[in-house]
Design a protein around this nucleic acid. Structure first.
Length: 360
DNA sequence: GGTAGACCTGGACGC
DNA sequence: GCGTCCAGGTCTACC
């Protein structure tokens, strides 16, 4: 299990700039572009600058942030914000960034994975990108069920645009213009761009399912998404989701798995995926991609159910690290098809992941 | 406990 | 341009 105490050191350079020192083995382009959620709204990976931009929801409203690792080979992360933060907001922001980038997963934990599966040591693979909040991770997982990847992209974009709060900033034609000590445009224009945050549980809880269906194209998931949001917007003492308990490394895997299966829209696949997003890597979220991988790369034959069983058995020897061994094999396959993940553009390469294309 | 069918959307395909 | 088919995981009813 990963430690939950953030190890990133924080220092403030200016009101709208933050410098974060990640673990020594952290590489932004590799560790952000390690899981498909980096391609989903509100995330914006800039392939040219190798920079992650997105809006975060904080107590005084949304803030847009761009995260870079200036020398590209490790070292401190430089974060430029669209506005100054209060001290409370700053704490919340660093907590969200730490979760999103898994900065609390220290080098020793990555080394333990490499000891079990040395194939990934040379590349340093170990961390998997996730969302700033558990709620966003759960919704991203639910919107990835029973739909192909372009549908997941569309649902997340619409959820942000229809229900997310936004920041309006300058746009110089190719990138966001951040003021207040940030980078300035060389071609000042009046162009503006709206950058949306992922909607809060409270906002979705107040939304009619019909609105989700009609405007966010969530289909039959509408009611389940609203119910999920209500559970996340309600305190544990009143029957809501106990997020602290779910994030606690001391919570037994079995108890957590059972609790996740109780959530609307969460079945065996989604529960296992949320488990890995919570840093529990023993279970595999088995889906049609697992079957494709089992057949095409591992050479298994039989029905889908039979292949899934074989895939599960194949990775069982990796024990509590099974998911990462499985996932990095899949990721390597995707990169063999489309090039390094840090070169995938959200709207072009990143939208191409469909079972039909991958099986070719 | 296992299985079948409904649930929606969007892309692919044929006409 | 239109209609049809198909892929995708969860949920419910049924055996």
């Amino acid at each position: 299990m990963a430690a939950t105490t953030p190890t990133a050191e924080l220092s403030l350079c200016m009101s709208s700039r933050i410098s974060v020192l990640p673990p020594s083995d952290y590489l932004l382009s590799r560790d952000v572009c390690s899981y498909g959620y980096f391609l989903l709204a509100p995330n914006r990976w800039d392939v040219h600058r190798e920079c992650l931009g997105r809006a975060f929801l904080l107590s005084d409203g949304p803030v847009y942030a761009e995260i870079e690792q200036p020398n590209g080979q490790g070292g401190a992360l430089r974060i430029v914000l669209s506005r100054a933060l209060s001290s409370n907001e700053r704490r919340d922001f660093v907590t969200q960034v730490t979760r999103m980038l898994r900065l609390d997963e220290d080098s020793a934990h990555i080394a333990a994975f490499h000891a079990v599966d040395p194939r990934w040591q040379k590349l340093g693979r170990g961390r998997l990108y996730r969302s700033p909040t558990l709620f966003e991770d759960v919704l991203k997982t639910v919107t990835s069920c029973n739909v192909q990847w372009p549908g997941t992209i569309s649902m997340n974009r619409r959820l942000c645009e229809v229900l997310g709060e936004h920041v309006e900033l300058g746009w110089d034609g190719s990138r966001v213009v951040l003021g207040g000590g940030g980078r300035r445009s060389r071609r000042p224009t009046d162009a503006r761009v709206r950058l949306y945050a992922f909607p809060s549980p409270e906002k979705i809880a107040r939304t009619r399912p019909a609105t989700l269906r009609a405007r966010c194209r969530t289909g039959y998931r509408d009611q389940r998404i609203v119910e999920l949001a209500r559970l996340f917007a309600t305190s544990p003492s009143r029957g809501g989701v106990d997020q602290a308990w779910m994030e606690d490394p001391n919570t037994p895997d079995e108890d957590l798995h059972e609790a996740l299966l109780e959530l609307p829209g969460v079945g065996p696949y989604a529960a296992a995926n949320i488990m890995q997003l919570l840093g529990r890597y023993a279970r595999l979220p088995l889906d049609t991609e697992s079957v494709r991988h089992g057949r095409s790369l591992l050479g298994y034959k039989g029905t889908s159910a039979q292949v899934m069983k074989k895939v599960k058995a194949h990775y069982a020897p990796f024990g509590e690290h099974a998911f990462r061994s499985y996932w990095f094999e899949m990721w390597e396959f995707y990169e063999s098809k489309h090039g390094p993940a840090h070169t995938w553009d959200r709207d072009t390469t990143g939208a191409m992941f469909t079972a039909a294309l991958l099986s070719k």
